[in-house]
Nucleic acid binder design. Structure first.
Length: 572
DNA sequence: GCCGTTTTCGGCCCGACTGTTTTCAGTCG
């Protein structure tokens, strides 16, 4: 049983208990446990074997016993009992927007509805409106929610959300009276996917801002609109929430709406300990007087904390670290001196080596590794030994023309075959500065086989970096089923680096993997994987993932100079 | 169900918006 499965069981138990109207704090305890387990960087099974379950926040005696039962037997009696009491379809109704535990229970108990399909049928037949607390409007909202659920393609990949937020905020920023405008929520925390957009504007008069927001061309539907909050759905089916607050309250507002919810709950607890109450509007003293915070620094300072960077705000130990004065010295984009992957027209890139080198230099880098695909990746017109030799000559020429201001390092993104071997001869690989090994095919191989392939690549003497270790494409393709713990241990043992692919469709290794890699002493290499001169601008997404994984400059290969990197490749 | 030098019991974050209500429950974040 892996962490995700066990987290899913506890989350499901919370949903069932919620529908049953259980004690909300007991429900919260299950939810919190599920979230903390999902966020663990170590396998839960390892923690269980070591008898250290009580070290996980939110896991007490009872839940530890339940984990023990799951690990030993693969089953959980309490879970099976709960599932027998509430049909799965009733729990699934919670996915419908505006249907919560109370209404799901109402529909089930009063009308015997046990699936979303039955719910839709009942709503169309006008059977919901006569239920207590319901009406025609509520019935319409249920139908609209079901429609939205059908359209919903899941969470928004970070890169898409980033661009959409920029497009929605730009026109608001230009309005008179708007002092600040910024994304908040999981987008500001740079989670790999974003549920919906949280946008924040500081202005004394909210109404003109709300009006402009409602009239933006991207808006398909206004879901709700009040004096402080407006929610819309875009034509692409994404939801965006805009909040407008006075500039003097910007700090509390930005802090609050950045979240995460778990982080904020902890912060409110700290406020209570100090006799304070924290909300998006202000910090309130017990006598009712307000402390206004125009910056987030002031909010954290009032609670006796240094500013915690948004990427860390997940209640994954950052509050304890902040209290102890041990927040990590997080990596910054400006720490990067180089990039470990870009492509040219030799394979599937869209620009020449010269154009790419200039773009990388313009992006502030001092060096970059040209890493065209090897021949094995047919779709990308991969390069063979002869093409790579010719490219080496071209690299020398480009480096000469750059006049010492920038250096291209020779390299390749060599294909790892299904059996774990590489599709270029050793003598070709030996001539290159950097060898990046990548798996692009056979992602559906069984876990053991895929893991063995990745480890074989890491053990190859000429390989320096393992690229995008799961091969996932966010929102399009699941990554391979891989024993990441084993792969990271192999990287640690061989002294090889693992890639953080910065492309917003990949973000692979992800934040949890990065944090574990750092714990195991694995070096990480951030790659833009640029196929176009503009793509070097994507590196900040990779930096964001590294920050979410608590990375400092020392953990990241890119912070070293080209000479230091070359010295590292000559490691024994 | 978790958690704790102010507690091993009694707390557990806070507010907006909507719809069905006449003072509030439900949902969401």
């Amino acid at each position: 049983m892996d962490n995700r499965q066990i987290a899913a069981i506890f989350a499901r138990m919370a949903d069932i208990l919620d529908i049953q109207g259980e004690n909300p704090h007991r429900i919260m305890a299950y939810r919190r446990a599920a979230e903390n387990i999902a966020a663990l960087s170590r396998p839960l099974e390892e923690i269980w074997r070591a008898g250290e379950l009580d070290s996980i926040p939110g896991i007490g005696k009872t839940l530890a016993e339940k984990i023990d039962e799951l690990m030993r037997t693969g089953r959980l009696e309490a879970y099976e009992k709960l599932r027998a009491q509430v049909p799965d379809g009733v729990v699934e109704m919670l996915q419908v927007p505006d249907v919560g535990p109370r209404k799901a229970a109402l529909f089930w108990k009063e009308l015997g509805i046990t699936s979303i399909a039955e719910l839709e049928e009942a709503a169309r037949a006008g059977k919901l409106r006569s239920l207590p607390g319901m009406g025609v409007r509520s019935e319409e909202k249920v139908l609209a929610g079901i429609e939205a659920l059908k359209r919903r393609s899941g969470r928004i990949p970070l890169g898409t959300a980033w661009e959409l937020a920029r497009a929605l905020l730009e026109p608001l920023r230009e309005l008179p009276g708007v002092v600040q405008a910024a994304p908040a929520g999981s987008l500001r925390r740079m989670r790999e996917t974003v549920g919906d957009l949280d946008l924040l504007v500081a202005a004394e008069d909210p109404e003109p801002v709300m009006a402009r927001f409602r009239s933006l061309p991207q808006v398909a539907e206004v879901l709700l609109s009040g004096t402080t909050k407006t929610s819309i759905r875009t034509h692409d089916g994404y939801q965006a929430d805009l909040r407008v607050l006075p500039p003097a309250r910007w700090g509390t507002a930005l802090q609050y709406f950045t979240g995460s919810q778990a982080h904020n709950i902890r912060l409110r607890g700290l406020a209570q300990d100090r006799g304070l109450s924290l909300s998006e509007y202000a910090i309130k003293r017990e006598d009712g007087t307000e402390i206004l915070c125009a910056t987030e620094e002031e909010v954290y300072a009032a609670l006796g904390l240094p500013l915690i960077p948004p990427e860390l705000r997940e209640d994954r130990g950052e509050i304890e670290a902040a209290l102890a004065g041990r927040l990590p010295d997080l990596l910054e984009l400006s720490d990067l001196q180089g990039d470990f992957q870009f492509h040219t027209t030799l394979s599937d890139g869209r620009a020449s080596l010269w154009e790419m080198a200039q773009a990388a230099h313009a992006a502030g880098l001092k060096y970059a590794v040209v890493s065209d695909h090897s021949r094995g990746l047919g779709v990308a017109h991969g390069a063979g030994p002869e093409e790579l030799r010719r490219q080496r000559a071209e690299v020398e020429e480009v480096n000469r023309r750059m006049g010492g201001t920038f250096r291209v390092l020779t390299g390749v993104e060599v294909e790892v075959r299904a059996d774990g071997s590489l599709d270029l001869p050793d003598e070709v690989l030996a001539e290159l500065d950097i060898v990046v090994a990548a798996v692009h095919s056979g992602l559906r191989q069984p876990r053991e086989q895929f893991t063995a392939r990745a480890i074989a690549a890491l053990r190859h003497p000429h390989v320096d970096i393992l690229a995008h270790p799961t091969g996932r494409l966010l929102g399009q393709r699941e990554g391979a089923d891989v024993d990441m713990e084993a792969v990271l241990r192999a990287a640690a043992e061989t002294g090889k680096a693992v890639e953080i692919n910065a492309h917003p469709w990949r973000l692979d290794l992800n934040d949890v993997g990065i944090r574990r890699a750092i714990e195991l002493g694995v070096l990480l290499a951030i790659s833009s994987d640029s196929h176009d001169p503009e793509d070097f601008g994507l590196l900040h997404f990779g930096v964001a993932m590294a920050r979410r994984g608590w990375a400092s400059p020392a953990h990241i290969l890119n912070t070293r100079s080209a000479e230091e990197v070359l010295a590292w490749t000559r490691r024994s």
